[in-house]
Measured scan of single mutants.
Amino acid sequence: MPSETPQAEVGPTGCPHRSGPHSAKGSLEKGSPEDKEAKEPLWIRPDAPSRCTWQLGRPASESPHHHTAPAKSPKILPDILKKIGDTPMVRINKIGKKFGLKCELLAKCEFFNAGGSVKDRISLRMIEDAERDGTLKPGDTIIEPTSGNTGIGLALAAAVRGYRCIIVMPEKMSSEKVDVLRALGAEIVRTPTNARFDSPESHVGVAWRLKNEIPNSHILDQYRNASNPLAHYDTTADEILQQCDGKLDMLVASVGTGGTITGIARKLKEKCPGCRIIGVDPEGSILAEPEELNQTEQTTYEVEGIGYDFIPTVLDRTVVDKWFKSNDEEAFTFARMLIAQEGLLCGGSAGSTVAVAVKAAQELQEGQRCVVILPDSVRNYMTKFLSDRWMLQKGFLKEEDLTEKKPWWWHLRVQELGLSAPLTVLPTITCGHTIEILREKGFDQAPVVDEAGVILGMVTLGNMLSSLLAGKVQPSDQVGKVIYKQFKQIRLTDTLGRLSHILEMDHFALVV
């Protein structure tokens, strides 16, 4: 994948999101292997301009796509893939009243899908469409860049269908997702969380590099694949309309690839034109409109599966009536509230959605109805927002919020430890010299600072030695090549209790 991002070429006709291997024109390309080798690009942008032909009021008969309808489940399912879809609609009884809503608040519980998330729908649909058009064949390999849930859905379907599955996901995604993927037989590649989507090191860039190296491999490409919004247009939206008897006044959905909100909203605009569509985008993402909503100094966020630093091709923002931004604290607070007060075992993005819903639905009156999409299960986040310690460490809970008995030293300040200034190293000294210094002084790690004293990161003896043994660096290389740029900081005025929580999850903390 090139470091400079080429513009994806656009073909003359058809839909841009065809499933299957992508040609340089962004659509299915038939021909000899030699032709494909000559024409197939190194990668295709996940934010390529959409060429979708959908228009409100256009006859369904003019759609270029294969459409399906929700099917009634048999008493005995032939395999677990038949437990994807037909998820329950559940009334939220307490939270709406707590925040003064007059309307009825309903939750579409997508964590009841077989793999635990709304992404099971698009995973199965992308595979079925690729099999139907002859792209996927027995023994082929599926590769997908994902925040985890699409990966789980694909790995689940691949396990049943017999495909090899490789999932490329950023490091910030939970260990629970990784464990589930491994249990399903998927191979996992992790990428830096802070890598831009168009960087060769991003999950998108690495996935395309693997595709170019592995024979008979395919990126189904949830960011561009029409099967993504079509899955929701054909099934999720129809289920909502049936469950609500066609009567709903507002739908609120958090947005990642945009397939969920695009597919549902398009069908609702056709069948229930008075329904307002509300999009939820986390602070630090750029999906919301108008652009002024996205202006923030924050560039990272903890909530998973929603928000991006690019506009995915499948996201149709014209069908969203209003956007709201959400933050991590309210997302996790509301997710825990949904679990504790409503018994809905949902993930953090569901918290984002409901946090926005109780604001947006203030305009609705008694007798009206708001539906929220709860995308995934708490299963993926047992060591994250479900953990009091994690919430404390991230600053989303305060010590006084917890009532468990603490040891005698818990409320003492870090400054009472009488710490001395640490050994520091410059980023320009060599790895070999740094190892000598650390061994001589008896230290395992040291902060790396520039000549102005600005902290650049941390270097550890173990990481340097393993990097040297693996051949990633040489003793003569500058130590700046092996620094940890993500590390926890703590102030002298913070409590030892807070430091204790940090050290339970990290090997060190830097006192500043």
Rank of each mutant, 00 (worst) to 15 (best):
E4L: 10
E4M: 03
T5V: 03
Q7W: 03
G11S: 15
P16K: 12
R18V: 13
S19Y: 09
S19L: 05
S23H: 10
K25C: 15
K25G: 09
K25R: 10
G26R: 10
S27D: 11
L28N: 10
G31P: 10
K36W: 05
P41A: 12
P46I: 07
P49H: 07
R51T: 08
L56F: 14
G57E: 13
A60M: 10
A60H: 10
P64Y: 04
H67A: 08
A69R: 11
P70K: 11
P74C: 08
L77A: 07
D79H: 10
I80L: 05
M89S: 01
V90W: 01
R91V: 03
I92G: 04
K94G: 13
G96K: 09
G100M: 06
L101Q: 00
E104P: 05
F112Y: 06
V118R: 03
K119V: 01
S123I: 07
L124M: 09
R125A: 12
I127N: 06
R132L: 07
T135R: 11
D140R: 07
T141Y: 08
T141C: 15
I143C: 02
N149P: 05
N149G: 07
T150G: 04
G151R: 00
L154W: 01
A157I: 07
A159E: 08
V160K: 04
G162T: 04
Y163A: 00
Y163H: 02
Y163C: 01
Y163G: 00
R164H: 14
C165E: 01
C165L: 06
I166M: 09
E171V: 12
K172Q: 06
K172G: 02
K172F: 02
V180G: 03
T191D: 04
R196T: 10
D198N: 10
E201P: 09
V204H: 09
V206C: 09
K211W: 06
K211S: 05
N212S: 14
E213S: 05
P215W: 08
P215D: 09
S217E: 06
Q222K: 04
R224S: 03
S227L: 03
T236K: 06
D238V: 11
E239P: 00
Q242M: 14
D249V: 04
L251V: 14
G256C: 00
T257D: 00
T262W: 03
G263W: 00
I264S: 05
A265Q: 05
E270N: 06
P273G: 09
R276F: 10
